[in-house]
């Protein structure tokens, strides 16, 4: 990241758009409706959501660069398989690294790491962008889409964890107990506050994303197209 900031001239207006647009106008999750599976399934706790976003972003950026570098030598007929192999290769690396260095996180992400392979965001960006653009633009596109994806994950995880468990776990920090301790009945719990169990169950992610889209489209009326 710091390198990008040093090479200021590379940030032409067009390149900045590559990063900014995916955060809102063409958000991969809420507007293009890609990569939903993992976005919804790993959001019970904030730290899982953050690690998952980082993993997806890493795979996306590196995959974009590789495909972009190889775009002139990939045979057209087998390009989808080539892309799948590149993504699968990167995902295996991510999975192995997680298992070796952050074992606890890899346990809680379980099969969802493998599902990065079929995360449509990655295949979509490789096919639609990296195959026809230079490496630098592909990096920015990867970072932008990675952030766009991460943003939704973090928002969903925030609501799910705060209202479902009353805590907030951010990697590298102690667990925050926002409303007090539920077992010892301190803080709000002393006044009969209860965690909302529904927030922990799968359907609540769908409600939150639905409302997220509602808010986003209400603020950007030009997005209401269909």
């Amino acid at each position: 990241m710091s390198e990008e900031k040093k090479s200021e001239p590379l940030f032409s207006k067009k390149n900045i758009q590559l990063i900014k647009n995916p955060l809102n106008q063409i958000n991969p999750v809420t507007i293009q409706v890609l990569g939903i599976c993992s976005a919804l399934a790993v959001t019970v706790q904030m730290d899982n959501a953050i690690v998952m976003s980082i993993a997806v972003m890493a795979v996306l950026v590196i995959g974009n660069v590789l495909v972009s570098l190889m775009r002139n030598i990939i045979p057209g007929r087998i390009r989808i398989i080539v892309q799948l192999v590149i993504v699968a290769f990167l995902v295996i690396c991510v999975d192995q690294i997680l298992k070796a260095y952050v074992y606890d996180v890899s346990k809680s992400l379980s099969v969802f790491v493998g599902l990065i392979i079929t995360n449509c965001i990655i295949m979509g960006r490789l096919e639609a962008f990296a195959l026809g653009n230079k490496p630098w633009a592909s990096i920015l596109d990867g970072v932008g889409n990675g952030f766009g994806y991460g943003l939704v994950l973090v928002v969903v995880a925030f609501f799910k964890e705060v209202f479902g468990s009353g805590t907030l776990t951010i990697p590298g920090f102690e667990k925050f107990e926002i409303f007090g301790n539920a077992t010892d009945l301190t803080g709000l719990y002393a006044m009969d506050y209860m965690n909302n169990g529904l927030m922990l169950l799968p359907p609540s992610s769908l409600f939150i994303v639905g409302i997220y889209i509602w808010v986003q489209k209400a603020r950007n009326p030009e997005l209401i197209g269909e």
Binding site: L201, P202, V209, G210, Q216, A218, P221, I224
Partner: peptide, 17 residues
């Protein structure tokens, strides 16, 4: 308006879930 289409589909899926 803003909820039409995908947004509503998400919420419906949640209810079915």
């Amino acid at each position: 308006g803003p909820l039409k289409g995908v947004g509503m589909a998400f919420i419906l899926t949640g209810l079915m879930g």
